[in-house]
Design a protein around this nucleic acid. Sequence first.
DNA 1: CTGAAAGCGCTAACAG
DNA 2: CTGTTAGCGCTTTCAG
Lengths: 334, 334
Amino acid sequence: MAITIKDIARESGVNISTVSRSLNGNYGVHRNTRERVLAVAHRLNYRPNRVARGLATGRSNTFGLVVSDIRNPFFAEVARGAEDAAYAVGCDLVLCNSDMDANKQMRYMSSLLEKCVDGILMNSVAALDRSQQELLSESGIPVVLLNRTGEDRAFSSVSADNFQGGAIAGEYLAKLGHRSVAHLTGPKRHGTLSDRAGGFLKGLDGSNSGIAAVMIYSEQTMKGGYDMARELIRSHRDVTAIFAANDAIAFGVLRALLEAKVRIPDDISLIGFDNVALSEVVHPPLTTIHQPKYEIGQAAIEMLVKQSKPGVLKEIEHRVMDVELVQRESCRAA
Amino acid sequence: MAITIKDIARESGVNISTVSRSLNGNYGVHRNTRERVLAVAHRLNYRPNRVARGLATGRSNTFGLVVSDIRNPFFAEVARGAEDAAYAVGCDLVLCNSDMDANKQMRYMSSLLEKCVDGILMNSVAALDRSQQELLSESGIPVVLLNRTGEDRAFSSVSADNFQGGAIAGEYLAKLGHRSVAHLTGPKRHGTLSDRAGGFLKGLDGSNSGIAAVMIYSEQTMKGGYDMARELIRSHRDVTAIFAANDAIAFGVLRALLEAKVRIPDDISLIGFDNVALSEVVHPPLTTIHQPKYEIGQAAIEMLVKQSKPGVLKEIEHRVMDVELVQRESCRAA
DNA sequence: CTGAAAGCGCTAACAG
DNA sequence: CTGTTAGCGCTTTCAG
C-alpha cells in the first residue's frame, strides 16, 4: 500500500489538511510545522497521488497530442518541442496517432476528454466537422490546431508561414535566373500546401519576368515526388528548377532524377520545404525552406498552458512562425 | 458542468450503483433497466470521468513510454508500435524523452508512478541504479526494458537479436569474399552494440578464412560514422567492406566516402543495422540488418498489459525478436 | 436484481 | 495558523 497524506498526518501529529498545505503552496502554515511535516514526508518516502489530486482539483496536468503519425519526422520534432515545454511546467503529454482517420481522431478526442486533459494539441484530419467542434467547445477545454491557420477560426492555431516560405522559394529560383520551373506538390486543396503554392507563384511573379510554372499534384510523399518527377522529365524537358512542396517529395525527386541520370543541380535545381534532418544528408544536400518544427510544438504547449490557467478567459490566438531559406547544394544559377 | 452518473441516475430513476453496473456491462442488472439507463446516458451525452474511475479502481489505463529522444527514428517506430498496441486495448501512452539523462529519467519515473500508470516501457540510460530499481520494485508496477536483455535481470525486456544480426552481417560479408573488413561502432562498452560487434566477429570467423577486422569506436551517430570513415580510409586503404553498427553511422560513412570519391559498392561495400526508413532512400540504397522496431514496441506493451492484469503474478520475461538481412545495393562481391 | 453506503487520496472552504 | 468537514465521480462491498 502506498503511503498517503493520512499516514504522514498521523506520523507528524497534525491534520491531513495541514499536510496538504505544507506540501503544496506556501499558504498559512507555520515554518516549524511545515518543516516537520516535510521531514516526515521525506522519511516515509511519500509520493503524492496525482490521480486523486486531479479528481479533487479538476486539473490533470496533462495535455493531449494528436498527430497523424509520430514516425513522420515533422511530427516527431513537433512532439519533442511540445514535450519539452510540457516537462518545463510539470505536465506530461499523452501521444495519439490519428492516421488522418476521422473516426480514430474522434475516439482519441473522447478519450482525452474523459481523462480530463488540460488541453489538446492536434493536427486535425481536416477542418473539424460539426460534431467534433461541438464536442470540443462544450468541453470548454483549450485546443490548439497545428497547420490550420485561417480555417476553424473557432480554435487557436500555430503554424509556419507557409505562404511566405513559398514566396521565398519562388524569389530565390527567379533570382537564380530560372525561367521555366515546376512545383511538385500534394492534393490541390490542402490548406498548408496551397499556401506554399500560392506563395511560390507570388514569389516568382515578383521578378516580373513572366516565369512559367508547371504545377503537378499528387501525394505529398516520397513516392509521390518520385512519380511526379518522372512525369515531369518526360513531359517538360525544358524545366530547369523544381520546388517540391516538402522534403519528402524532394527526396522522391532526387531519386527519380538520379535514376534518369539528370544531374542536380547541374541540369535541374531543386528546393524543398521543411528542412528535416535528412535533408542535409542526402546527395546533394538539399536546399530547402526551414520551418521551426520544434518551436511550433513548444509554442503550442505554451499557448495551451496559458489558456488552461483557471480564471483566464481563453481568447483564441493564431500564431504563425517565421521560415527561412537554407542554402545547400541542390540549386545553382540557370 | 459535465454530466455524471448521478445525473443519469436521477434522470432514469435508479441508483447510481445501478448506473455504474449498467455502464460497465457487469452482470446483475435487468435487461430493461440496463437499456433504459443506457438510453438516458446516450441522450444526456454522458462521458465517464476516467480520473474518478482511476481513483476508485487503482488502474489508470495508461502506460508510460520513456525513450531517449522521440526524434530518433528508431524510437518513433517503437513508439508507434507501442501506441497502436495500447490503443487496441483502450489504453493510452504518456511520452517521455529522457535524453539519456539519469536525472531526467528519475524525474519521469517518479512522475509516472504518481500518475499511477499501469506499466512503464523504457530504454534506460544504462543498467538501472539501485535507487531506481528500488523505486520500481517497491511500486510493484510492471516494467519492460528496451534493448537491455541480460542486464537488469530484475525486469522484463524486449530487444532485437543483436548478436544474431551482427553474425548475419559478418557471414554475408565473408561469403561475398571480403577478407579485409572494418566495423565502425559506438562506445566500446555498450550492451546492444557490443552484441552486434560480437556477433559480427563470430560471423566472419564462421568462414574459417582468418578474416582481419579493424574495429573503430566513436559516437553511434552520423557524425561519428563520418569521422570514423575518414579515419579508416586514411589508415587502412586495404579494407573492402564496412559493417556500420547502425544506419546512422552508415549514413555518415556514405557521406565521407562520397566526398573522398570512394565508390560504394565498387570500391568498398557497406552494410548497416536497423533498416530505418531512410536506408532505402540514400544512394546507393543501403544493405542493412532489419530490426522489427514496430513489433518491439507492440510486444512490449502486450507484455505490460499482461503483467498489469490484476491477480496475475508477474514473472519477468525476456523476449528477443528476430532480425533479417535486407539486401540492397551497397554491397558487392570482393 | 437493486439500493445504501463506504471509500479511493487529495483539496478547499469554513470555522475556530 | 490549524482542524473539521465536505466533496471530486466512480466502484464496490453489503444488505435487502
